[in-house]
Design a protein around this nucleic acid. Sequence first.
DNA 1: GCTTCTACCGTTTTT
DNA 2: CGGTAGAAGC
Length: 761
Amino acid sequence: MNYLDELNEAQRAAVEAWEGPSMVIAGAGSGKTRVLTYRIAHLIHNGVDSFNILALTFTNKAAKEMKERIYKIVGNEAKNLWMGTFHSVFARILRAEAEKIGYPSNFTIYDTQDSKSLLKSIIKEMNLDDKVYKPGLVYNRISSSKNNLVSAKAYMANVNIQAEDRQNAKPRLGEIFLEYEKRCFKSSAMDFDDLLFKTNVLLRDFPEVLLKYQERFKFILVDEYQDTNFSQYLIVKKLAARFENICVVGDDAQSIYAFRGANIQNILNFKRDYPDVKTFKLEQNYRSTQNIVNAANSVIENNKEQLEKEVWTDNTEGERIKVSQSLTDNEEGKYIANEVFDIQQNHQARYSDFAILYRTNAQSRALEEALRKKNIPYRIYGGLSFYQRKEIKDILAYYRLSLNHNDEEALKRVINYPTRGIGNTTLEKLITAATTNDMSIWDVIQSSEQMGLGFNRGTLQKLNEFSELILSFSKVAENAEAYEAGSYIASHSEILKDLFTDKTPEGVARYENIQELLNGLKDFSESYPANNLGAKPMLADFMQDVALLTDADNDDKEDHNRVSLMTIHASKGLEFPYIIIAGLEENLFPSQLSLNSRSDLEEERRLFYVALTRAMNRIILSYSLSRYRWGNLIHNEPSRFIEEIDDKYLDIQKAPEPKKFEQTSWDDGWGNKGGFFEKSTTTSAPAFQKKKLKKVSDANFYKEKASADFPDIKAGTIVTHQKFGRGTVVGIEGGNKALIDFETVGKKQLLLQYAKLEIVG
DNA sequence: GCTTCTACCGTTTTT
DNA sequence: CGGTAGAAGC
């Protein structure tokens, strides 16, 4: 069987032009991944050693999938192929070459949280107002500088930047940047942007290193090229400079990452960098129905800045795109859940055939709730990833600190967790000493006694115990294999014990999360390639790019039949038979912040285009006329993007009138009657007993609600309130407690649960 | 030093 | 509304 036969003419041409620079402009659904995988296979078939191929992707998932597909075609010959995200590939190279740029090879990778927390302490130490110098903003500023290869020094020296900062009343940004760089270096840490920035430094300052990798990567392929930033662009350009065997694949119409420095010009100007580039256009869409393709085309036509191409399809006409209006975000959720349920029933679809897409992560909550109530299994991608949960970060911080004692953020995280009597005052003294003496905090702790920092015996003792503990962990990490070391640290740090004693639902979930992490570590240990010299899988290997993993990389083994919920950004590269786009309202999608600039609005439109083109069979567009935002009801107009779709592709539905909940009398068995409710459940008191209640002086919020909608709860009688699971505990005068759970419908409170509880203990 | 309570703030999008 | 940082209180 000739694998080339599986390609259409355009795809085949793109695959066969395997030497020299080429650019593939791949319309949505046109088989871009196919071209990339077959091209790599074709390289190998033409005698290229897979060792000499580098393929860069944007997500680990894309890399993994592509690698599997290549294996299927060429088998073991692909084993030396290097395929990964920009960040993971260059992190690995940086580890190999670390000492050239003054870093140890076991440097830590700071994630966004770490970076922001470090910035926050720097801002505080400089006595600056963190309302002016908001860590998030400072982080973005530093990030975009680095992505444009402007170092802190260059930032300080640049007259324009300095003038700009002064004009924005943030003249000291440069100093913060400088200190941030210094601190990262002292902590032997790199942030996400450093991985690319330092790679550039490495390739710039060490010609022999550049040459080495140029020789190694004789063939380079870049996926999603439209989303590369300047820093990435330059790395690719340098590496490819010697052989110019570079193939970039992308679609300018799907460029959605300009906000983090992606430069659409990289793809638009590719021809300038490589004058003899061969350009291929993939225009036939295999994914979607005609209606979907045409509708998406009619939307993207509104953008001025784009390469010329015409996406078309041979597929059936398909159904029209349904547009649905709801009154509130909760109603919208309900509508979507019902629709998913109905389609699944009537079309023999699986839940995993559906994806619900939205503009912001915050929108997921109402949707989740609705799905849960209808017992529809779902999975959320993105949002708070597994690796960003507190308990996971805590454990990882122990691992990090054990492997790299200089890791400041990890140290700050665990020095007093679980509590061991080293408080803020002590920590501040340590940080000050570290800054003034230009040492890492760890080194200060090691010599805190000699340095005369004014700690009393007890504190010195505690610091000593802490550093002994970490040193013992380091020893284990150096000798034992990954799983053994990981579980040793987890138990001896006493985090496990701490969580095990916490029997609240949240505590149990945290404990389980840690178990899951340890299971992952076990898998890692067991599946470690039994390679040369019997090298053991070490904790350090596991930690190498754990910071670069995201939730999407966690393939869960359980139950794959679930609806996917994700932001449109996260849906890039995926496809589903049924796509539901929620929250199509002006100011939300397109985002309010994009309305002032044409190019921002065009990016939003491309985002909408991406969302539409994920669908194979059917699309539902949904918007809500009002939505809760920070507790306030705000009113919305339907998104302009809906109007940009030609009517003939649409099937516009007027919202069904929302069901008014019926007023029913009820009796909880304790003599309480009245109120609005849909279902009444008695909540098990024993679970509640484990929680002790707090006294709250003022509970106005409930007073208002209570007087209006819960006639049996008299205004002014509520004395305490507290979140409990998915309900709210309300204490009523006289020592009685109640658990209520309600949902807001319009301006009314709909009581879902009311249970009187008695507290023991 | 640790716990409890209050006041404030937030929403783009992610490796 | 929900989360959380930091102050006040223990």
